[in-house]
Design a binder for these strands. Structure first.
Lengths: 216, 216
DNA sequence: CACTGTTTTGAGAGTTACTCTCATTTCATG
DNA sequence: CATGAAATGAGAGTAACTCTCAAAACAGTG
């Protein structure tokens, strides 16, 4: 009856073991979801993305193929779905209002990278690599990008007292996301050398000031 | 034997009737390609994108389904493939070297919009609308975005004497494209009201200077 | 524990985009 | 016209999804 379908909703994002009082049903759903994801990551690492079929995933996760599709609308979603966007948008909103915009952004990006590194660094890399190598995954990632863009433009609009649906805010938000996404691809293409945070810093500089020495 | 497969290559971009000395084979291929596209546009207008199957397209274009796939790798490509990117990149490269970068960009964008308006305004709108409404098409569009990004960063690097594969140039190029793509979606979402060129101008302002009155 | 209603699951059939193969047709050329 | 190359069509095959429906697992109640 309630509006939000727990089947398609993501589980509580940053909760490792603290699932206090959930019904057996809910706990099972979370377990199933994680089983499907784990099976997928393992199979993709073994065989590659394209060679991995939903049937294999279902088999390893010990569920039926139907169930896989009930939990994830597409194969790409199994790999890519994450819950960080909303968290980052909230974090951004929570920064002190006096803080310069770019400082807030830097702060939040740093947090996100750290959290990701602490929790599941290999998954993050697998994702980045897949989004470079597999067109379908990349497409899905771009797609989620526009969702993120929507969140970001709300945060931006709120912060600057602007209309979130103006061309200006929308363009600004999307150009931001485009730039950040490129960083992730650059990082994957260069085999994850160096610190991601350094790359992000350089990207933010470009987003803030344009290309260095643009007008000598 | 030659490397470039004429089957997958696009026909000469901006040539309406001037196909002088092409073999019968080549002319037929161009006709087939255009027939498939025309059939697709018509069917999509009549029934919508999802309801239109490859079989229907093949039937109306009077070719076999196999042939449709020979000409276009995916259904989305039939709708989206265009040849303007390369032209614009070349145009950009052809601008006088003294001209300020943003002036060059504005000039080229203006040209592109005019050309598109003159040639096939309704197709451009159909595309924009589909890329708002149909996830698969939108994804494919994002995908082609990253191709465009590659062209753009070459042009940028050349112009500014920078490495086209540096993070800076890549981020700059991609943020640019992200912003411009958002304009197209904004335009479609607002039912193509107003002049696209005005929206693009506002977008370019944002890309150049950031959000207006960002630091009051 | 038994009873009842709701949620979740599995099984199966069906659709469709896309791939591959091979025989046939269509054009190019000497 | 003959010969070779390229384009087409036909058909079988795969795999991601969708829909439907009946069986199973859970939740709450007497």
């Amino acid at each position: 009856m309630p509006d939000n379908d727990p089947m398609t909703a993501a589980p509580s994002p940053l909760s490792p073991a603290d699932r206090p009082r959930l019904g057996l049903r809910e706990r099972k759903k979370i377990k199933t979801r994680e089983a499907i994801r784990a099976a997928t990551y393992a199979l993709v690492k073994e065989q590659g993305y394209d060679a991995t079929t939903i049937e294999q995933i279902a088999e390893r996760a010990e569920v039926s193929p139907s169930t896989v599709f009930r939990y994830f609308p597409t194969k790409e979603d199994i790999v890519l779905t994450d819950e960080y966007d909303q968290l980052m948008a909230d974090e951004l909103r929570g920064r002190p209002p006096g803080e310069p915009w770019m400082d807030s952004v830097r702060h939040v990006m740093r947090l996100a990278i750290e959290a990701n590194n602490r929790e599941n660094p290999d998954v993050a890399r697998l994702r980045a690599r897949l989004s470079v190598d597999v067109p379908a995954v990349r497409s899905r990632m771009f797609e989620s990008m526009s969702t993120t863009g929507r969140l970001l433009r709300e945060a931006i609009a709120e912060r600057h007292g602007k209309d979130p649906d103006s061309v200006e805010v929308r363009v600004y938000a999307m150009s931001f996301i485009g730039g950040l996404m490129e960083v992730s691809m650059y990082w994957a293409e260069h085999d994850f050398e160096g610190e991601l945070s350094d790359l992000v810093d350089r990207a933010l500089d470009v987003l803030e000031h344009g290309l260095p020495i643009e007008n000598p």
